[in-house]
């Protein structure tokens, strides 16, 4: 098991919601030969994150995030720095929330301490394939920022 895991989340069928998955393929190319870093496209797999992070030293999440920032902005934060605005009714397994999943993992005592989230503000979330140009044009910048994070470890 590689000590560092980059988990990319999102859905490429939902416009900018797919940014994480697009960055997964870019990062996989850059890091293919890296012995310490694994990149995973976990789609909208939700609670599977619990198993993927167990036993790792550092986790980096890459996900679309509504943060009240200008579209295309990328922000680096830790889970403690944010509060989720999602309303969860627990009707359905499909209303996943990463912060909630991490909370469960922490309660179970299997969550690594070193967790960083890169959130990217969407321009549009809709049933369309492909990113808006605001995000598409920033891909190289996003990749470089995430790769720089690896130097911190």
């Amino acid at each position: 098991m590689k000590p560092v895991l980059i988990i990319c989340l999102g859905n490429p069928l939902m416009r900018d919601e797919g940014i994480g998955i697009r960055l997964a393929s870019e990062l996989m190319e850059h890091l293919a030969d890296n012995p310490d870093v694994e990149v995973m496209d976990m789609g909208t797999g939700g609670l599977s994150v619990i198993h993927a992070i167990e036993g790792r030293e550092k986790i980096i999440f890459v996900d679309c995030a509504i943060m009240g920032q200008p579209p295309g902005s990328m922000k680096r934060f830790t889970p403690e720095r944010v509060r989720s605005n999602k309303v969860r009714m627990r009707y359905s397994l499909h209303e996943g929330d990463l912060l909630n999943t991490l909370e469960l993992s922490r309660h179970l005592g299997q969550c690594p301490d070193d967790i960083v989230i890169f959130g990217i503000e969407p321009k549009e979330i809709a049933h369309v394939q492909g990113l808006t140009s605001e995000l598409e044009n920033n891909i190289p910048k996003y990749v470089q920022t995430i790769l720089k994070e690896l130097d911190r470890t």
């Binding site: 989340l9 909208t44 509504i66 944010v82 509060r83 989720s84 009707y91």
Partner: peptide, 23 residues
């Protein structure tokens, strides 16, 4: 609510984005 849950419905299943505010 338990009745709805018992059907294990698939609602809002295709999106997953974070919606956060900084604290």
């Amino acid at each position: 609510e338990m009745l709805v849950r018992s059907y294990d419905p698939c609602i809002s299943c295709s999106t997953h984005y974070l919606n956060v505010e900084f604290v």
